[in-house]
Amino acid sequence: MSERTVSVGSRVGLHARPASLFVQAAARQPVPVTIAKPGGDPVDARSILMVIGLDVRGGDEVVLHADGEGADAALDELVELLATDHDAEVPS
């Protein structure tokens, strides 16, 4: 079982576009991933409704879990995504 703790880089938090990007990335992973606030109940990282329901703000820490083959690589990718400030990007 692999676990990572990461601080959310997007200032708006895990809402809106950052949440969409995260959920889409989680769905692409070969293993199921969960996300939780520290000490909170983990939820399915592929579920945008559950993820935005966590109400994670910018700078908050979240804990990712995954099991099975490829779990570490999956978490590494998601951690990098979460740590990035997607608000800073300028969409077209």
Partner: peptide, 21 residues
């Protein structure tokens, strides 16, 4: 759409496909 409007629609599409839902 583009910009913020597109973001809203993408997020809404993800909600419709939400596995928990």
């Amino acid at each position: 759409a583009d910009g913020a409007a597109a973001d809203v629609l993408v997020a809404q599409g993800l909600m419709a496909r939400d596995p928990v839902l």
